[in-house]
Nucleic acid binder design. Sequence first.
DNA 1: TTTCCTATATGGTGATCACCATAGTATGTC
DNA 2: GACATACTATGGTGATCACCATATAGGAAA
Lengths: 193, 193
Amino acid sequence: MARRTDARASAISTAERLFRIQGYTATGLIQVLKESGAPKGSFYFHFPRGKAQLAEEAIDCYVAKRMAVLRHISSETAGDAPKFVRQIFRTFADEMVAADFQYGCLMQNLANELPALDADLTKRVARGFLDSTEIIADHFRGCGFTSERASSAAAALVAALEGARTIARLERSPAIFEALADVSVRGWASLER
Amino acid sequence: MARRTDARASAISTAERLFRIQGYTATGLIQVLKESGAPKGSFYFHFPRGKAQLAEEAIDCYVAKRMAVLRHISSETAGDAPKFVRQIFRTFADEMVAADFQYGCLMQNLANELPALDADLTKRVARGFLDSTEIIADHFRGCGFTSERASSAAAALVAALEGARTIARLERSPAIFEALADVSVRGWASLER
DNA sequence: TTTCCTATATGGTGATCACCATAGTATGTC
DNA sequence: GACATACTATGGTGATCACCATATAGGAAA
């Protein structure tokens, strides 16, 4: 039987948004339901396992969107590592500016509340990072990097992106993305003098 | 009159620890008091402004310790930027290994729960990042970097450190620090082939 | 039309949250 | 001994937490 309302989907997208702004523990189900317009009575009909399940579906949604963005950038800059790196930083910076620096990364926010997460959710977060990293590593391999170096460069880029989000949010400025792009592409040596 | 007990200090250090592991919202005062051994009855005697004040004192303590570590590394590697960068990554990695990857960065955890923080606490977090960055920028200036480039390189390094902590915690591995040290010092160019 | 399944409303559960009022104890100074 | 200060115990406040039992409304399939 087909679904008759969008209560479920809107609850997920609202949860994704609130988890990114406030974090997992700080976001109550009542707030999610109120802001999404979804009815309170049917929450445990749609999400029998409760808040944990809601978070699982939210992160699946978030990771899928993030990977789509990365894949798109990768295909646009095939074979050109510096351009790829710059384009990633610019895209993330633009997203944050557009959202007035209100949103953190959902994976990072969940990772910072690990004890509140069950094993399943923790695995999904870790998987999200691994999958993102792999897309980036693939691109580097396509630029002629050795496999090992492509992997470590990709991991470094992912970490830098996460840190940049935290800083940008606090400073309400995309400057950190520019700084990271420069350092990443040119290395410290070129910064001297 | 002199203080007669260490209830206050132990509450602060316990709060710092729990905030780093669980985050701000997820950590209840009852847990802080129980784990610190501090009596429940005197909490609002020591911290009249409640949980927010406890967090303020915890972050002051955390930032002071972090800056001391950075200053020490800086003085040990004066004039040598690559060595400085590598030493920072190694020190942070060693700390995480020693603590079995249980601890996040207090500033980052608080930054990811911004809506739960009052203005005073938010300012303290931002100030902590600025002060840390400034120590690093000073070192780069001492290596002959231009002032502007020293600042942006320092900001990039701080962001990378934050992101690395998140990843390392999730992967329970210090590998990301190694990867970042390589990329930071050598740049992407040297990773090709 | 009867029977399901989807979906929602209502009204709770006990637990925990940060916070506080009141009273009392311990330890210092004078 | 008098007295002030430093500290703690007790027992709450109302609010919010995630979660759930029960009843029922609405549309599709039989």
